[in-house]
């Protein structure tokens, strides 16, 4: 099937208007931003929303700025803007790493960070990136705004803390000194879903890892937050052996399935190597920032 089922369509002129429409139209209404996940699902009739509320006119949701000790990213910010942002590259190079290998330029010109996070596909990259950098997201609904940490964001496969009448409006990245971050991914080819991907962020002070975040894509039902490996690393001096050990934990703590992209053993192997490599690069970047 190559055409979606019939649906109603409206263009939102404000965030509050979009929220009001969601409330009015009920659970069969969906927000559409870049549309690169929703539209293919509609064409395949995997998603059959009765109404689409198009938020692409809400330019007020498209920004990357520094404010109150955070990097703040509007939900409608396109992948290409994340790829090219110097501010983001300076503080969180993990975004440029990921965006280089997310889909292709056509998709990156259109797809948004808010859409990626809300789609919450386990193979999606930015969910792992945001998990690693310990992002918080701002969710606005009829009852007002709330801020949710990534650790509480995913509630199940394709399910997030964003409720039926809610809109994700902003992603916040707390700025702390001594940070370095990196994203490592393997896909069968450009534009395909990942076979596996690992995002890592470290914060280093006085030769010790003061904090660390690791997120994995495509090797579980949701994005995987590697808390056991983080616990191992926190407080330690960065070293190859330590990162290799963290990689081994990562390989053990993920839960990939076998499919056309590879058998389980290979995916676990990839997770180990990618986690190791991501930590190594993140630490090197932290060190170069310190210098």
């Amino acid at each position: 099937m190559q055409t979606p089922a019939p649906f109603g369509y409206e263009r939102a002129t404000s965030v509050d208007g979009a929220i009001a429409s969601l409330q009015r139209l009920g659970p069969e209404a969906r927000i559409i931003a870049g549309g690169h996940s929703l539209l293919p699902m509609m064409k395949l009739r995997l998603a059959n929303p009765e109404h689409l509320i198009d938020i692409n006119d809400l330019v007020e949701l498209s920004y990357i700025r520094e404010q109150d000790g955070e990097i703040r990213i509007g939900a409608l910010t396109r992948h290409v803007a994340l790829l090219k942002s110097e501010l983001l590259a300076r503080h969180f190079p993990v975004f440029a790493d990921a965006e280089t290998v997310i889909a292709d330029p056509v998709v990156r010109n259109r797809g948004t960070i808010g859409g990626s996070l809300c789609q919450a596909d386990a193979a999606e990259d930015l969910s792992a990136v945001c998990t690693a950098v310990k992002a918080k997201v701002v969710i606005r609904g009829a009852a007002g705004e709330r801020v949710v940490g990534m650790e509480d964001f995913h509630v199940g496969p394709y399910q997030t803390a964003v409720g039926a009448g809610d809109v994700l409006t902003e992603v916040r990245l707390p700025l702390r000194p001594g940070s370095g971050s990196a994203h490592e991914k393997v896909e069968r080819r450009a534009g395909d879903w990942a076979i596996a991907a690992a995002s890592a962020a470290v914060w280093i002070a006085a030769g010790r890892i003061t904090d660390v975040g690791i997120g994995l894509s495509a090797v579980g039902l949701t994005t995987i937050h590697l808390t056991r490996a983080e616990d191992l690393l926190r407080g330690q001096a960065p070293s190859e052996d330590l990162f290799a050990e963290a990689g081994a934990i990562a390989a053990a703590d993920c839960s990939p399935g076998a499919d056309g992209r590879g058998p389980i053993d290979y995916k676990r192997h990839l997770v180990g190597v990618l986690t190791h490599r991501a930590l190594r690069r993140a630490a090197a970047r932290a060190a170069s920032q310190e210098a």
Partner: peptide, 16 residues
Amino acid sequence: DLRELPGGVANTTHGE
């Protein structure tokens, strides 16, 4: 260039 490394643009091999 990523395109010249194993896996091409579909991965993040950096020469390791």
